[in-house]
Design a protein around this nucleic acid. Sequence first.
DNA 1: GTGGGATGGGCAA
DNA 2: TGCCCCTCCCACA
Length: 284
Amino acid sequence: MLDAMPEGHTIHRAARLQGHAFAGRRLAVTSPQGRFTEGAAALDGRRLERIDAVGKHLLYRFEDAPALHVHLGLFGRFRLHEGDDPPTASPQTRLELVARPEGAAGAGRPAVTLRCSGPTACELLTDAEEATLRARLGPDPLDPAAGPAGFAAALSRRSAGIGQALLDQRAVAGVGNVYRAEALFLAGLHPDEPAAALGPDDVEALWATLRELLRTGERQGRIVTITPADRSRPPSRLRRDEAVYVYGREGLPCRRCGALIRSWPLGGRRVFACPDCQPPRPTG
DNA sequence: GTGGGATGGGCAA
DNA sequence: TGCCCCTCCCACA
């Protein structure tokens, strides 16, 4: 669990794996760095019931306590250690959760230490604050109950390009800069295509692509967007630079058509696209 | 050793 | 739109 700079897949995976390690257990909660001391004290010694992932946000539910909200942002990362002898905590450790074998509930479960450094958010939320957070988030493709309707509605209200819209968490929650570029490539959409100009078929296909990519990423623990037809080895054997079509590949040949990948700033981040596989469509 | 960039996002202007 | 937050890592001296 060392993925840094996560998109939604990493967060959902973290919720699943950390849930396996911690759910139902009483945790020691501290803030070695000292910047979350008060919040940690409010949770220390309580039982963790479950962990929810929403977009790129994590919500830790403790018994009889406010929700713990963690957002890794661009710099945050988790480190998970099993066993009694975790490495010395870095001074940057904002949050540390420790479960130790105890009683019937802990029998057979090893000691586990989770550390989080560099998060954008590590805070306790009231129910009202959590509602505000959720209201800022569009549908999450990794939520089995979510569908493309809210996504389509958000896109129809935008004059900006689809590439910009995909980074807006109010339109769709959990997509980041890598999946934006890769999903648009797979959908054959130019990033500057006005979001509102997309037809229902395009929107549904894009939603399905995002869902598939994020699900694959959640399972693999890394971003792999290359389809079986375009690779000769299993995903786990692909080098980092072999696992994507366009992201970070400016000036390199497209894996499908050989045209040189281009990049430009869009929505505050750099977007990547193939000029031939993602042609601008005539506006009408 | 140093410096720039990175899979994010909130805020002011 | 640009600035700030904040940590890690890599390319480059």
